[in-house]
Amino acid sequence: MTTDHDWITTPITADLLRGALDLEPTERGLLPHRLPARARRQIPDGQLAMAEAQPSGVRLVFRTRATAVELDTLPTKLVYVGAPPRPDGVYELVVDGRPAGRASVIGGRTMTIDMATGAASTRPGAVGTLRFDGLSDGVKDVEIWLPHNESTELVALRTDAPVEPAPDRGRKVWLHHGSSISHGSDAAGPTSTWPARAASLAGVELINLGLSGSALLDPFTARAMRDTAADLISVKIGINLVNTDAMRLRAFGPAVHGFLDTVRDGHPTTPLLVVSPLLCPIHEDTPGPTAPELSDLGAGRLRFLAMGDPAERASGKLTLRVIRDELARIVEQRAAEDPNLHHLDGLDLYGEADFAELPLPDQLHPDAVTHRRIGERFARLAFTAQGAFA
């Protein structure tokens, strides 16, 4: 902490945070979660536990005259055995709706993951500080978007002028659930994930339940969505079910129905958009599971491979093409009794022409430029003209 300002420390409370469904008190401060405690008690694996604690779409939002802001946090950095170091998570400052700065916190905890075995270990670390200075001295709305891919305990907020919660601007709340692509894998920063980009263009408040590797039609995720206040809801279904080889076609249809039924229990007439998978050539006609090509890690590259056999489709194994057809059928069937249920083909967001121009670097995830394109397309297809959220 620096001492060239007369700092005011403001307690970090729920009314200063948006995008989180729960705040867990820790020894140091507060850990934002994107799934509530009840759901977290039912999480069956470390992947989802890690993903839901990474605050994609979570931001501090307040009104102030402050010209300087400091935030103490305890991040958890990820290290993958044999892979090049990951860049530090990015915090982005937005002032009155406009980008105003980026910063990172050095240090923190380190979680080391062995992709070959799934083993993970954590090393403790120190709290770090980020600072944004030189802000105008007028009253303004300030947002600090937390790193979308780095778990972040919030320890202290300091400013050189008083802080109050930002007023409710009456914007609609958009609740979205999806995979690592929705979570923001390989996006340039937390405001550049495709859902954040789409929300900014549409002028809505985002709650992002994009959960890396974990869009698996889990009942506890559906209940979390059921119980979350929202004006608009979307669910992107498919790629993780193939990645994990989690179910066959026989189980998939009823699982989709059950997930949508649960969401509808809490949101009977809310516009609900079902989005099918983006193009992913390795899994269009080849089932999962998906596995990393570990021999490439040492060279600084990460590629994923489809490990299934296309012939296994005959026994009900899922591919992206099978899932798209089934989702379209299910939505058409349900829409006869649910006029607020809609379908969006993921190929309209990222299809063959896009892959030819902007291929998936690791065969699975879009890069930062493609996130921007997907976000802009979603905003146009969902929020304008005859879109589900128009």
Score class of each variant (00 low, 15 high):
residue 11 P to E: 09
residue 13 T to L: 02
residue 14 A to L: 01
residue 17 L to R: 03
residue 30 L to N: 03
residue 35 L to S: 04
residue 39 A to Q: 06
residue 43 I to K: 03
residue 48 L to N: 01
residue 60 L to C: 10
residue 64 T to A: 08
residue 66 A to L: 09
residue 73 T to H: 00
residue 75 P to M: 06
residue 82 G to R: 09
residue 88 D to E: 15
residue 88 D to I: 01
residue 96 D to W: 03
residue 101 G to S: 13
residue 110 T to N: 07
residue 115 M to T: 11
residue 130 L to N: 13
residue 133 D to R: 08
residue 134 G to R: 14
residue 137 D to I: 05
residue 137 D to M: 01
residue 140 K to N: 13
residue 142 V to C: 08
residue 143 E to Q: 15
residue 144 I to N: 10
residue 146 L to K: 05
residue 155 V to C: 05
residue 155 V to F: 00
residue 156 A to R: 15
residue 168 D to R: 12
residue 168 D to I: 07
residue 202 A to M: 07
residue 203 G to H: 11
residue 203 G to Y: 10
residue 209 L to C: 11
residue 210 G to V: 10
residue 212 S to Y: 02
residue 217 L to N: 08
residue 218 D to V: 04
residue 229 A to L: 10
residue 230 A to W: 07
residue 230 A to Y: 07
residue 234 S to L: 07
residue 244 T to Y: 00
residue 252 F to D: 12
residue 257 H to T: 11
residue 258 G to N: 13
residue 271 P to A: 14
residue 278 L to T: 14
residue 280 C to A: 14
residue 282 I to Y: 04
residue 284 E to D: 10
residue 290 T to H: 00
residue 297 L to E: 09
residue 298 G to M: 07
residue 307 M to I: 08
residue 308 G to Y: 05
residue 317 K to C: 06
residue 320 L to N: 14
residue 321 R to N: 15
residue 325 D to V: 10
residue 329 R to E: 15
residue 335 A to F: 00
residue 336 A to G: 10
residue 348 D to S: 15
residue 353 A to W: 02
residue 355 F to H: 15
residue 376 E to W: 01
residue 381 L to G: 08
